[in-house]
């Protein structure tokens, strides 16, 4: 797993291309070609995944989710940061300015 500093709201993130994603009953399930693991992103995690198909700041992701979901901003920010941090550690998302994880091998 990748060990790095925690993300902040100003970080720009993007979904890694080396994944196969499928919708299953409203939830997104993903296979990482890089590590061979399967992941369940759930429904909201799947929505986040769609939003970061192109580079977006974490704050932009949160703003969009606040428009769609009934949630407090502080709670949303913290939970989205935790979720993206976990995905980053699994090598599933890229952070702008960092080398792609595949290039580190």
């Amino acid at each position: 797993m990748i060990s790095v500093e925690k993300l902040s709201l100003s970080d720009r993130v993007k979904a890694c291309d080396q994944n196969i994603v499928s919708d299953m009953g409203g939830e997104k399930v993903m296979l990482s070609i890089q590590n061979g693991n399967y992941y369940n992103l759930g429904s909201i995690g799947g929505r986040i995944w769609e939003v970061i198909g192109n580079f977006a700041t974490v704050a932009e992701v949160v703003d969009l989710l606040l428009e769609e979901y009934d949630v407090d901003r502080t709670e949303c920010e913290q939970q989205v940061l935790d979720f993206l941090d976990h995905m980053r550690k699994e090598g599933l998302v890229l952070v702008d300015g960092e080398a792609a994880s595949a290039d580190q091998a």
Partner: peptide
């Protein structure tokens, strides 16, 4: 004016499947 109801929030979790 009709406004679209917001969806219920649930903490996003990354579940690593076995």
């Amino acid at each position: 004016m009709h406004t679209q109801a917001k969806k219920a929030w649930k903490q996003p979790q990354l579940e690593v499947l076995d």
